[in-house]
């Protein structure tokens, strides 16, 4: 995972509420059993003139030349709602987005962003309106200081839990991090086998073939 500290880049406004993960990456675009090859399917339903086609819809924000270099996406409330498919975060990351700045996020999608090097930034409506007005001018997302700076100089602070921030800053792999605690996990399982034996009992578990 590519670490994220601070980045100054253009932003693309997609100011709709409830942008769901099926809009971000339609199910029909998830053709391969893997995490890559998704960037062309990003927002496919809005980005192309017809279903399954690749003819750009000229009005869609990502197709406008001014936003071609955008690395931030601006949006409304409840961004990433719907299906938990992580393909939405994979597609955004593969396309090149490094942060989504929205009024609010769906919780599963938000976690998926953090695990894929995309900073989820929740800001109030007026901040997003200002940033959208100034887009595509470069703005800054500073994860170290937890701040967003508009081209015009306005600054907003955003909230992000320490754990997520640390993972993004250092580009950490959560599995490797957790496996450092293997001894604690084993101690828990040992004790839990006695507390709740039915969870581990062979009658309730699957067969290991």
């Amino acid at each position: 995972m590519t670490p994220f500290t601070s980045l100054t880049a253009g932003a693309a406004p997609l100011l709709r509420d409830n942008v769901d993960t099926d809009a971000i990456i339609p199910s029909r675009e998830m053709k391969t059993v893997g995490k890559t090859g998704l960037k062309d399917g990003l927002f496919a339903g809005w980005r192309y003139t017809e279903v399954g086609g690749r003819e750009p819809e000229p009005g869609f924000v990502l197709n406008r030349p001014a936003f071609a270099e955008a690395r931030f996406l601006l949006s409304g409330s409840n961004f990433g709602c719907g299906s938990s498919r992580e393909h939405a975060a994979w597609a955004l990351a593969e396309y090149g987005f490094r942060a989504v700045i929205a009024r609010s996020f769906n919780p599963i999608f938000r976690g998926n962003c953090v695990r894929n090097g995309i900073v989820p930034v929740a800001l109030p409506q007026d901040a997003i309106a200002t940033l959208a007005q100034e887009a595509p001018e470069a703005m800054t997302v500073d994860l170290v200081a937890r701040k967003v700076r508009a081209a015009s100089g306005a600054v907003w602070t955003f909230e992000i839990e320490d754990e997520s921030r640390q993972m993004l800053l250092e580009g950490l792999d959560a599995i490797a991090l957790t496996l450092l605690r293997r001894a604690e996990i084993e101690a828990f399982l040992d004790a839990d086998c006695r507390r709740r034996p039915w969870i581990y009992n062979e009658a309730t578990t699957g067969t290991v073939n």
Binding site: S84, I108, N112, R115
Partner: peptide, 22 residues
């Protein structure tokens, strides 16, 4: 609860998840 694929990998590999208490 529903999770993403990376979290599923994490749960399978470690038997745990790192979670912010809701």
């Amino acid at each position: 609860w529903g999770i993403g694929s990376s979290e599923a990998e994490h749960a399978l590999a470690t038997g745990t998840l790192r979670i912010q208490k809701p």
